[in-house]
Amino acid sequence: MNQAIAFYVLSAFILGFAVLVVSTRNTVHAVLYLVLNFLAVAALYVLLTAQFLAVIQVLVYAGGIVVLYLFVVMLVNLKRPPEDHSAPQRHSWIGFGLSGLVLLELAVIIGYGSIAPPGPANAQNTDLAMYNVEKIGMLLYTDYLIPFEVASMLLLVAMVGAIILAKREL
């Protein structure tokens, strides 16, 4: 019962802030709505007993990636909103219509698909919920060690690439 209320409230926040991100004219406001969206998603992860992912979401996504977006928005400090002089004959209603159709189709498929059973009975006391960090750490370092190392190489390459791309003079 409490879980249901929490889920619906958090979903309202997540979808509301997402719509605001996509529709605001002011880019800084859009970035701030994105932060709030990520914080709501982190709260949803706590509801799903994925505590480690929740703090990683806040630490890396909301506290790292979006700070990067905010910096770039401030460095690209334009005098007029960048979309003021877009082509006036853009037909955005086609996009809305098609997306609505796809959403309807997917919702019907999911809703009428196999009714998935609810989560485990003692969800708060399972091993994965209580020893979340230990279990994920074990998985990361034993079964999925190679993807872990590849991800670290990817981050190194991305770091070098970002520095080279953003330098003023090579």
Binding site: Y61, L68, L155, V157, A162, L165, A166
Partner: peptide, 10 residues
């Protein structure tokens, strides 16, 4: 996503 954001913003 972090890697892609960094490179894309660069």
């Amino acid at each position: 996503a972090a890697a892609e954001a960094a490179v894309g913003l660069g």
